[in-house]
Amino acid sequence: MRNAFADEMTKLAVLDPRLILLSGDIGNKLFDKFKDVAPTRFYNCGVAEGNMMSVAAGMALNNLRPVVYTITPFTTTRCFEQIRVDVCYHKAPVIIVGTGSGLSYAKLGPTHHSLEDIAILRTLPGIRVIAPCDSIELRLAMRAVLEDNIPAYIRIGKKGEVDIHASPPKFKIGEAIIVRPGNDMALLCTGTLMYETLKAADILEKIGISAEVVSFHTVKPLDKIYLQNASTRFNLLVTVEEHSRIGGFGSAVSEWRSSTNCNVQQISLGTDDEFMHEVGSQGYARKKYGLTAENIAARVAASLKA
């Protein structure tokens, strides 16, 4: 996904002279093509993310469209106050991109995991919180937030994520995309666990359960229209995210349920309330927290059986 991000940034830089890229000393060679087409619009701000975010806000308040890019914890939790005050309070249209989100950097340890970013950022007034499921949604999201004029956070994976969409779908911020229609229940996924979620739907189909699979690429604003419709069609909604079960996408759906007195059943799948002390690959980490196709399918099957 990061290669798609760099490629899309290069294309957009040609089209939009307002586009600026600020990097926190990351992406060696990744942005060479961007620098070729926009040599005066790339800023390596060093390992100083708080300052980088404020600099971006200053640019955004003066007719530019800065994109801030580094590994997710460093562009979210580390500089939360700069996002809160300088970006959101000022309604500065900064585009914040976190790369290697969730457990992408599982092997690097909890310093590089990001399992709280959706939770804290979606508390901020006025910001978009977006987690595309693949490179195609990422490219569409980049274009959509550029057309917007308000702050946005885009949470992306690292590399090697499987493309889900065969061709670019209709994409609108805050409007979920039905990736696979179904009749019995809905699997609502935000971010890069979509491949596992689709495989879960395959497993469920083999045992006679028709699961609708939906890409909730936007966590904020939440697609309440889809949720309202889904709650009339299904008895079970399952949220899937590579993020803590506290405060993330599943929590956003729970908040919607309680605010609307909706009694549809919900299962939230995400990571446990702990730091992962053992070393392991992203696949290992996902398995540890039950974020695999097999476990997602098993949870659905057990719930419907009960």
Binding site: G50, N51, S54, V55, G58, M59, L61, Q82, D86
Partner: peptide
């Protein structure tokens, strides 16, 4: 830091 962003925006 915001002032720096504003100054760079001028350039």
């Amino acid at each position: 830091p915001m002032s720096l962003g504003i100054a760079l925006a001028a350039r």
